[in-house]
Structures are given as structure tokens and as C-alpha cells.
Nucleic acid binder design. Structure first.
Lengths: 140, 140
DNA sequence: GTTATTGCAAACATTTTGCACCAGC
DNA sequence: GCTGGTGCAAAATGTTTGCAATAAC
């Protein structure tokens, strides 16, 4: 948390009670809360905080590399009729999704602690990166 | 497509032009369209179709196992302050998300065709399954 | 004092629902 | 004819934006 404050100072970001509370809520939660979850939790200490502030702060924290969205895709659902196991390349810039599949990822070694308690139905690898087009645009 | 029709008949699902068009649009698209994309594409042939029908049909197709959502998480964004590489166990029943990490998944062998054209920034494995609690409830 | 942040309200986008009409079986 | 599907409109949900008041620096 001291490191967080130092980082904010260094980057010219105000250190506000709201910002600290939001970051603290995320740090001390193991349940991948939604913006709404965080909002409800924080409201006890900060009764006037607004959901919009939570969203804005989460965006800032993500830009600064402190947190990440667990749903890296754009919010809108995307559908797929490809029924074979395959993985996704997701362009972080233009949101394009490309399939790939490879024998090398057919039988991932999931640890015993996972297979012991969960019943596994399926898995996919989500690779984040820049597609060929967006690499060009980044250089421009 | 013939197999699709046969499956619908066997399951007591009506074979409607709209349903066929939606499934066809998905089959012949490699770009993981959204509901809106499908809607716009189909409207040329079916000018009276509604977006609600597209959504309802997509849900049916998913239940029947013909398609899947590329965003398997619930629509709301979930956040994470864990900065180390880790993977997600997602319960398909209660939406819980649990982290796990293992040395075995630290350096996944991505194929040359991927690393050759995309600039890879990160990846995570998304495992879908039933958590311990929901396994119990399923049996009940 | 200046700049960034907050909190409100309103807008926006996506998805779901209720219901009357219609089509498939 | 019965059942399930469609299409419309309205509601619900999640997220973003504009802006004036306020707090951090």
C-alpha cells in the first residue's frame, strides 16, 4: 500500500481516500469483485461514494498496471460455432478474436489441487496481444 | 446443417427460417460475431427479424451445444489485483472465479504461426468447471 | 491557485422479459 | 389445434460521460 501511494505521487495522481479504499478492497479480496461489489463494500466507510467513481478509479488502476480485468474481452458477448477445442488470440487494441489450435495445448497439465476439487469441463487459453494490423498502427 | 435440422427435430425444436439463418451465419463466420453482428447480417434476407429473436436463439443454440459464448464469464467485468501470472477456474453454475497458478503453465508452447504474426503480451488459461459447492448441488 | 478527482444525473449499450400474434408440427 | 417461436416494446443491467463542486497538491 505504501508502494501504491508512492507510485501515485510519482505519477502525479492524487491520493484520495476513495482511491485508497478501492485499491484496498481489491487487495484484500480473493473473489474477483465486480465494480458493484466494491461499491457496496466501500459504502460502509464512504457513504457518499458513487459507482461512477468506482468505475473511473478502476480504469485508472488498470492503466497504471495495478489491477486487471478478469474479462479482458470487450463487454459484448461474442459467439462461436467452432466446437473443437481451440484457443483465442485477442487483440488488445482492436478487439479482434482469432482462433488457433495446436496439438501442443490439447492436454494441459492442470495441477492436482485443481483436478482434485473441481470437476473440469473444458478449458481454453486466452492469449492477449497485438494483431498484425495493430502492430503496424502502433509503430505509426 | 442437415445434422442441425435432424437434431432440432429429435429434440422437439421448431425448424424456423430465422433459426437456420442464425446458425448459418455463425457457421460461415470466422470472426466471432456479436448478437448485433448476426442481426445486421441476417436482416438482409429476413427484414422483419428482431434482435430479441437473435438473443433467444443464441441462448437455445448454446443450451443445445451448437455454439458457445467466447466470453464465458458473466457479462459484468470482474477485477483482480493479483499481478503474477495466474489462471482462472470459473464455475459455470455459480460464476465463482478462483485463481490458481502452477509452474507447469508458466511457459506454454504457443505455435510458431501465432508467435510469428502476433506480438504476444500475455496469456491465461481459463478452466471451466463446477466448484466443490456446485458439484454437491448438482447431485442434489 | 491550479489541477485532478469526486459525485450526481443523464446517456448509452447490451441483454432480458412480457405478451400478443403467428408458424411449425 | 396445440405448442413453441417470433417480433415488438419496455424494462433491466452494466458502464460511460458531462459537468459543477470539491479536495489534493
Amino acid at each position: 500500500m505504501a508502494q501504491f501511494i508512492a507510485h501515485c505521487r510519482a505519477r502525479g495522481l492524487s491520493v484520495t481516500p476513495q482511491r485508497l479504499a478501492i485499491y484496498h478492497a481489491l487487495l484484500t479480496s480473493s473473489q474477483h469483485p465486480s465494480a458493484e461489489d466494491i461499491y457496496r463494500r466501500i459504502r460502509r466507510q464512504h457513504p457518499t461514494i458513487s459507482l461512477a467513481t468506482v468505475y473511473k478509479t478502476l480504469e485508472t488502476l488498470e492503466q497504471e498496471g495495478f489491477i486487471s480485468k478478469v474479462t479482458p474481452l470487450h463487454v459484448t458477448a461474442r459467439y462461436d460455432a467452432n466446437r473443437a477445442r481451440h484457443h483465442h488470440l485477442i487483440c488488445v487494441r482492436c478487439q479482434a478474436i482469432e482462433d488457433f489450435s495446436t496439438e501442443a495445448l490439447e492436454h494441459l497439465p492442470l495441477p492436482q489441487e485443481v483436478t482434485g476439487s473441481w470437476r473440469i469441463l473444458d478449458y481454453t487459453v486466452q492469449v492477449l496481444g497485438l494483431c498484425r494490423e495493430c502492430q503496424k498502427k502502433e509503430r505509426a
